[in-house]
Design a protein around this nucleic acid. Structure first.
Length: 480
RNA sequence: CGGGGCGUGGCGCAGCCCGGUAGCGCGCACGGUUUGGGUCCGUGAGGUCCCCGGUUCGAAUCCGGGCGCCCCGACCA
């Protein structure tokens, strides 16, 4: 019955995505167009993402702060490219307190401007640098076509903002944060991302250079998972962020910004999910192990529950996030499917037979059916669970990496590029084209330059568009 | 902003052409049965049929107007 099975990925990927998001209880529809309610299970994944990133930010010397949701309209207009980039999608408050405001307030789409204004006050001398700030916040961009987590009118993110004395320090910071994103994506989210630089067309409005981590989703479309911008002195000049150098001269600062959003939740869903539902990497899974007790009658129930509670305590004591599914009136079979839908990495089954044999069954989410099940002595349950979780974390990453690598093709002519994109894969090509050339490719094939990957082809080649010799390689793909 | 569709219990829908007591599946509640891969049976709760107006003895159904939403084409974490 359609109430049970989810649409297969191969049949209709975006339908699959929507069903999973709602049925795994990550999100709920909101009364406001383009927005979503993030439900507890989805929010816990986001909390895992926050924790993983925040720890890394702190280790590298950043501090959290919070800036206002409302930005005076005039601020947004101070940096020319910035206005141009964002004005179409701004939400603006014109009335408040029953009166029309003297100056409309923009609901922040990002905070370079307010933070720039603050930085100009805070920074006096080179001794105040570098200034390393991050904020966790919601932002609003009035998008037309929205999808839960991937693109919503309001979303949650972190935005880092830093100021430095020199271009090179700013560049170093920009790159360091990109590395942190990549490290987090790969090691915590098990998403093998590709680091690279954005083309001019895809660059952040107002940035000198934008770097990105790009991931391949299960339908082979590209998803930009995080970006890090070297803003040069553009915002420093617009907001007068200056410092007195040791030489006693006033200098403009060099600033950076970098952000990663709740889109990452969508990336986890679309990178690892299968036709049974979510597959969560253990490091981000709200529940790493779920225990399903099995019994027929009260006496079995008490024997089983005693073992269940003991094992729960063992795992919990070792820091494993464990949940006992003690719902009455739901069959074990139903629970198995339910937790598979929700992507819990390890399921533990304990029934009367296991109690009798001092066993437990461990089933791994990434290997369905009997192959993924093993009988373990209760005495060794902790070690077994720990190593299974580590194994799942690694194998999800490996799966995704193999999938990605199988769908990137090196091309040396434009016809090949077109064919590869048509097929749905990514194309890697030598590129020395102009903005207009890039747009032409988009019009023609639907693909954009996702990035110029840092890991370049060793040998220079010939640009697929212009025929000019170049050492630069671009990744082309259809993107979300 | 251009083209197509839809508004009916919480969700998904049927009913509308041809006006006459508002239905089905899922979910929910209760009882029993079952429980090692999505149990089954019974009982029950739950609806201003998007809004306003018109036609009519009578409107979910026909007519007029409005509102909202979804899908497809140009921009975006």
């Amino acid at each position: 019955m359609s109430e049970q099975a989810v649409t297969a990925q191969s049949e209709d990927f975006s339908r699959w995505y929507n069903e999973i998001v709602y049925r795994a209880d990550l999100a709920a529809p909101s009364p406001v167009r383009g927005c979503v309610i993030i439900k507890p299970y989805g929010y816990e994944i986001w909390e895992g993402i926050k924790a993983g990133l925040d720890r890394r930010f702190k280790v590298t010397g950043h501090q959290n702060a919070y800036f206002p949701l409302f930005i005076p309209e005039s601020y947004i207009q101070r940096e020319a490219q910035h206005v141009e980039g964002f004005s179409p999608e701004l939400a603006v408050v014109t009335h408040a307190g029953g009166k029309e405001l003297e100056e409309p307030l923009v609901v922040r789409p990002t905070s370079e401007t307010v933070i720039g204004e603050a930085f100009s006050d805070w920074i006096q001398s080179y001794r105040d640098l570098p200034l390393l700030i991050n904020q966790w916040a919601n932002v609003v961009r009035w998008e037309l076509r929205t999808r839960p987590f991937l693109r919503t009118a309001e979303f949650l993110w972190q935005e880092g903002h830093t100021a430095h004395a020199t271009h090179d320090e700013a560049e170093e910071e920009t790159m360091q944060m990109l590395d942190i994103y990549a490290d987090f994506a790969i090691n915590d989210a098990a998403i093998p991302v590709i680091k690279g630089e954005k083309s001019r067309l895809e660059r952040f409005a107002g940035a000198l250079r934008t770097y990105t981590i790009e991931a391949m989703m299960r339908d082979r479309r590209a998803l930009q998972c995080g970006t890090s911008h070297n803003l040069g002195q553009n915002f420093a000049k617009a907001f007068d962020i200056r410092y007195l150098a040791e030489s006693n001269n006033q200098e403009y600062c060099w600033t950076t910004s970098w952000g990663l959003s709740t889109r990452m939740v969508g990336a986890v869903v679309m990178t690892h999910g299968d036709d049974k539902g979510l597959r969560l990497p253990p490091k981000l899974a709200p529940y790493q192990v779920v225990i399903v007790p099995i019994y027929k009658n009260d006496s079995q129930r008490s024997a089983v529950m005693e073992a269940v509670e003991r094992l729960q305590g063992t795992l919990d004591g070792a820091g494993i996030r464990v949940h006992v599914d003690n719902r009455e009136g739901q069959s074990p079979g139903f629970k198995f499917n339910d937790w598979e839908m929700r992507g819990v990495p390890v399921r533990m089954e304990i029934g009367p037979k296991d109690v009798q044999n001092n066993n437990a069954v461990l089933a791994r989410r990434d290997v369905l059916g009997r192959q993924g099940k093993q009988f373990i002595s209760q005495d060794g349950i902790l070690e077994a669970a720990q190593s299974l979780l580590a194994d799942i974390q690694a194998s999800l990453l490996e799966d995704a990496r193999a999938f990605r690598d199988a769908h990137i093709t090196d091309v040396s002519t434009y016809d090949e590029l077109r064919a590869v994109i048509e097929e749905g894969d990514w194309a890697r090509a030598h590129w020395d084209g102009s903005d207009a050339d890039e747009l032409a490719v988009k019009d023609d094939t639907g693909a954009t330059i996702r990035c110029f990957p840092f890991e370049q082809q060793p040998a220079p080649g010939v640009c697929v568009m212009t025929g000019r010799k170049t050492g630069r390689v671009a990744l082309f793909a259809k993107a979300y």
